[in-house]
Amino acid sequence: MSRRLEPEEIEFTKKINMIYFSEELSFEEAVREYRRIEEEFVARAGDNEHHVVETRRRITEWILTEALDCEQPQEVCREIWEEMLQRGFSDVMNRYVMSGIYARCCQMNGEFDEGLAVIEPLIAESEQALADTTLTPYMREYYEHELASDRKIRDELKAGDRGDTEEEEPEPDSTRTTRPSLKFVRRTSDLFRHSEAKNMSFEEELREMRRIEAECVQRAVDGGWDVLDTQRRILQSILRRALDRRAPLDVCREIWEEMLQRGFSDPDRRLLESSIYARCCQLHGAFEEGLAILEPLIPEAEQALAESTLPEPYRRDYEDFLQRQRELRDELKAGIRK
């Protein structure tokens, strides 16, 4: 998506989030809202075919995710999946992510062979890609991560394991998700909506977020989810909230140091979260600290992009992402405080 449409992209995301994080909407009501947003932004795109196609793809992705969270029957999930196959995937990464979500839908509904038919070709692709000695470090790390995840899903499908969604009684505040990191996002979203009315300080919010985090991590342990991945995703949300609330630098730094200890799932995530902390540094005038973290990562990402064979439009999106990091770097060098 081009940079001039970034404000519209932000508006699209906000409207989607209002639906996804709502506790009041049923699945059917949520789908109607997603379709309404689809019509609105397709109309805005006019004759820009790329934006029309990508808008439709994003909507289908959200509806499929919603179907898994709301534990919809297989025929509902399958209809959404077939729509996704018709609309296509923006890039190989989206294909892997959404295929994994549909395989989980199959697992949840006991359609193990159907899930295997989706996930096993991805495993073969990843194994073949990793056998290529010219694969860039970035893409190698990506395929290794996906391979481990897909093998876990495959093994559960072969074992006839429906996962924790079949027997678990949903909690009142998490009826539309079973994933611990999404549960954290949903519960903290509700917390943030009420914190202003209650005049809560960030320190009070942080204590509540840490309490919710402990519950969600335990949920990951009990449910057999990836605990480290859950911890990482939760901490990313906490760091972003610290920036939004303009938390003191020593508080942001403590969160950042914890994030470094837990590590990052891939190089892109490391660059993204580093830029969030660099903005915390910029906010407080700690320009050299922000530069020391962000500046070394930009050449690494530029080299990885130059050596990669990423398809369009993912390459354009990634170039835009890199440009935003360069702009932040230049602001830190210039001592611009925001």
Rank of each mutant, 00 (worst) to 15 (best):
G163A: 06
R253W: 13
E66I: 02
E327F: 02
E120W: 04
Q325K: 14
F321P: 04
G285S: 02
Y34W: 10
A301K: 03
P137E: 08
V185D: 13
E120H: 01
E288T: 14
I255W: 10
Q236A: 12
E166L: 14
L130D: 05
E205H: 01
R193G: 02
S189L: 01
A247W: 06
E28Q: 11
T133H: 00
P73H: 13
T309S: 05
E141Y: 01
E166P: 05
R219L: 11
I255M: 12
E288P: 01
K333S: 10
T134Y: 00
E302L: 03
G285V: 03
K158H: 00
D226H: 05
L147R: 04
T165S: 13
L25D: 02
R337E: 12
L297C: 09
E167K: 03
L283N: 15
D47K: 13
P180C: 14
Q231V: 05
D150W: 06
T55Y: 06
R187F: 09
K15S: 11
E258T: 12
Y138W: 09
R337W: 12
D226F: 05
Q261R: 10
R36W: 11
I238E: 00
G224T: 04
E167W: 11
Q325R: 14
A334K: 07
M1R: 09
A117V: 03
Q231A: 02
G110D: 05
T136D: 10
Y138P: 01
P170H: 07
E302V: 00
S308M: 10
M108T: 07
S189T: 09
E61N: 12
R57L: 09
E196F: 08
D330N: 01
V185Y: 15
L328E: 02
C216I: 06
K158S: 02
I101C: 04
V92Q: 08
E258I: 05
Q236I: 09
E168P: 03
G290R: 08
R210D: 04
E29W: 01
E288H: 04
C252S: 14
G335D: 12
E205A: 02
E319K: 07
R240L: 14
L239D: 00
V221W: 02
E144F: 00
E61K: 04
E258D: 13
E83L: 06
F27K: 00
K183Y: 11
A242Y: 01
I123P: 10
D132H: 09
T177F: 12
D113H: 08
R187L: 12
S237P: 01
E49T: 15
E75S: 15
F112A: 06
D268P: 00
L5A: 07
M200F: 03
R32M: 05
R219D: 10
H50E: 15
C77K: 03
E289L: 05
L249S: 11
